[in-house]
Design a protein around this nucleic acid. Structure first.
Length: 490
RNA sequence: CGGGGCGUAGCACAGCCUGGUAGUGCGCUCGCUUUGGGAGCGAGAGGCCGCAAGUUCGAAUCCUGCCGCCCCGACCA
């Protein structure tokens, strides 16, 4: 049992904060709303980045980098986009400080006022499309498939580690295409990449669907998303892929000559996932003993802890453990042999559990006599003694089994917490209990807003796989031809 | 920006009402004993009690002002 970790079922929020802190993932910084990602947390993020980056490359994308600053005039160009982001922008107005004439410290030099304010990017559509004007001339320049790894700033009122911070790390893809169909196809392809990543790397099942007009990205014609269910019954938007139509190419006057020698505006997409995925990963799998990591994203996949009394015993154990370490390393498994002497084995057990290390091997003198080794798995917290000679093979199989088992557990949780609801009374009861609600909706933004005002539930998405089914809106009674997904969300 | 709470050792907190030697737990240092699930005992180190001004013989404690942080709402990847 972990010392002092709050129970997940009693105070989910506190439990989450404690795991982030105790597993050494991140902490609040002295800077308002900003987060320090600690080495262990960043190691997990790096594994995510690498996997995603490989997937982007495999779908033909290239990385590039664009400026942090967005001139205000750029942001103004696409009207809806401007309106959507205006309320959460950090603005640079001056470029110099000077010694305070009235005493200590520094003051902003009033003579150093910028002629045009610079916005710290909340997203990069505008800077990028301003650049694309010079990159795109001909149909031969298309498609243009670019991704950027960067930080962005959105001045949110309230922040939470990983889930919503003032500054966050993300990737943003920005593509330009010759035809509408091609851009739509790209939007769908990248959502598919995100879903694939969420399910196969994060072991987190996601719903794929379309956002309603209310929830759409500012400046997009269509926003596709993946939505995951957290263990407290709240939804988390985990990734979005936007079809931007010609909104940005028109606003930034980007044109190309098509094969028929006619000028056209290219069609755009943008798509992104952020360090919020770290929050999703934590909330999707972890338990009262701490973090639970799927093997594919664990910086340490296997930890080996020696159990001994005498120093000579440690030497004997180390001799037997080293070949195991080498074998696992050769198989590409991230293994750590913790032979440190400053903590006892019991302490180590608890510590690696807190950090979500998938497999722990414990070896003591008793095992050595019996030719066994103890294998403990993090997801089920079960232990068994196996033959020490074949432990390498056992671990390789186990890691694969665990990746699948963690996904299956999360999927089962989602299925058990997805409810088909037909009456408004039931809706109000169920929304308090949490989970996804499948209900009919009349398709109007007005109804959507009233439901949100009364229950805090939003339409998470209109799922791609929603079956055609005639019904009546759970709120207004109006006609509907399929169910949409409601939930309270982070 | 509204409503609530909190600033005391590295961390978590008690003490404040009713003013009188600065406390507890964890962590840290040293020693001995321990070691198959966060060890035990002993000895130590560590404080401008958020800042400023006031009341008082005397302020962590009472009064006033300021600063900072957290929670809840509006906003949101």
């Amino acid at each position: 049992m972990s010392k002092g970790l709050p129970k997940r079922s009693e105070n989910y929020s506190e439990w989450y904060n404690e795991i982030v802190k105790r597993a050494d993932l991140a902490e609040n910084s002295a800077v308002r709303g900003c987060m320090v990602i600690k080495p262990y947390g960043f190691a997990i993020w790096e594994k995510m980045q690498r996997a995603l980056d490989d997937m982007f490359k495999a779908t033909g994308h290239q990385n590039a980098y664009f400026p942090l600053f967005v001139p205000k005039s750029f942001l103004e160009k696409e009207e809806e986009h401007a309106e959507g982001f205006a309320k959460e922008c950090a603005v640079v107005t001056h470029y110099r400080l000077k010694a305070n004439p009235d005493g200590k410290g520094l003051v902003v030099d009033p003579n150093a006022k910028l002629e045009e304010e610079l916005i710290i990017r909340p997203t990069s559509e505008t800077v990028i499309w301003n650049t694309y004007r010079t990159w795109i001339q001909s149909w031969r320049d298309l498609p243009l498939l670019i991704n950027q790894w960067s930080n962005v700033v959105r001045w949110e009122m309230r922040t939470r580690l990983f889930l919503r911070t003032t500054e966050f790390l993300w990737q943003e893809g920005h593509t330009a295409h010759a035809t509408r169909d091609e851009a739509v196809e790209e939007t769908e392809r990248m959502l598919e990449v995100y879903a694939d990543f969420a399910e196969n790397w994060m072991a987190m099942p996601v719903l794929q669907g379309t956002k309603t007009a209310n929830e759409r990205f500012a400046g997009a014609e269509e926003t596709l998303c993946i939505e995951a269910l957290m263990q407290d019954g709240k939804a988390l938007q985990s990734g979005t892929s936007h079809f931007l139509g010609q909104n940005f190419s028109k606003s930034f006057d980007v044109k190309f000559v098509n094969k028929e020698n006619q000028l056209e505006h290219p069609w755009a997409t943008s798509w992104g996932v952020s360090t919020r995925l770290m929050g999703a990963l934590i909330m999707a799998h972890s338990d009262d003993n701490g973090l639970v990591l799927p093997p594919k994203l664990a910086p340490i996949q296997v930890v080996i802890v020696p159990i001994y009394r005498q120093d000579e015993d440690l030497i004997t154990l180390t001799e037997r453990i080293e070949p195991i370490v080498n074998e696992l390393k050769a198989a590409g498994i991230a293994v750590k042999y913790d032979d440190s002497t400053n903590q006892r084995s019991g302490w180590k057990f608890a510590e690696y559990e807190l950090r979500g290390v998938p497999v722990r091997l414990g070896l003591g003198m008793r095992d050595l006599e019996n030719g066994t080794i103890e294998v403990a798995r993090r997801d089920t917290l079960t232990k068994e003694s196996v033959s020490i000679d074949s432990v390498g093979e056992t671990v390789k199989i186990l890691l694969e089994q665990m990746q699948a088992a963690i996904y299956q557990k999360a999927l089962r949780f989602r299925e058990e917490n997805t409810h088909t609801i037909d009456t408004w009374d039931d809706f109000k009861i169920q929304i308090e209990k949490g989970g996804f609600i499948l209900a009919h909706w009349d398709g109007t933004p007005e109804t959507e807003e009233k439901i949100k005002a009364e229950t805090k539930a939003t339409i998470r998405c209109i799922p791609f796989d929603a079956e055609e089914e005639a019904g009546n809106c759970v709120y207004s009674g109006g006609e509907s031809n399929k169910r949409v997904v409601f939930a309270r969300a982070y």
